[in-house]
Amino acid sequence: MDLPMTTHTPSHGPVAGFGAAPGAAGNAGQFITCTLDDAEFGIDIMAVREIKGWTDTTAIPHAPPWMRGVINLRGVIVPILDLRARFGMAQTQATRMHVVVIIQAGTRLAGLLVDAVSDIIAVAPEEVRPVPEIGAAAPERLLCGLVPRERGMVALVSLDHLLSFPDAALPQTADAVLALHS
């Protein structure tokens, strides 16, 4: 399918000082950015397996609202997370225009439902800012860094924490994170 993706990667290859900087900066590298409304999120390109259009899922009983169910990905059962709902907002009204980013963390495969995929960006370690503590809400654990861009900001998603389901212990309100963008 056609993806709303424009590819202009300024620099290929590993970023200098990769992994050497402390804290969140260890996540530097290339990221695929995707959008949820106006907010932009970055997903480590090394974890992305494929990008596909939304297909209907099979619901999983008693799963949190952000767990949209499972799909058949060429014979493998893969759970689909609604990234918008995961960050505490309403469930995405998924259409065929919505995009699922299949990622792999460790041995686990999962799909992330997003509005669209927009870009691939290279991020140098020193560009990554730590995620500030935002009140009582814990979902900042789902983010591992913020990168300022010319227009707005890209929040880097922590895939390890995202895929630590079915751990519903995380509170599901994160308006604060998105409020950062305004």
Binding site: P61, V70, V76, I77, R108, A110, F165, P166
Partner: peptide, 13 residues
């Protein structure tokens, strides 16, 4: 097929 590989155990499933 395994559900546990990518998701986890579900009661009753």
């Amino acid at each position: 097929k395994s559900l546990e590989a990518n998701y986890g155990p579900i009661d009753g499933i």
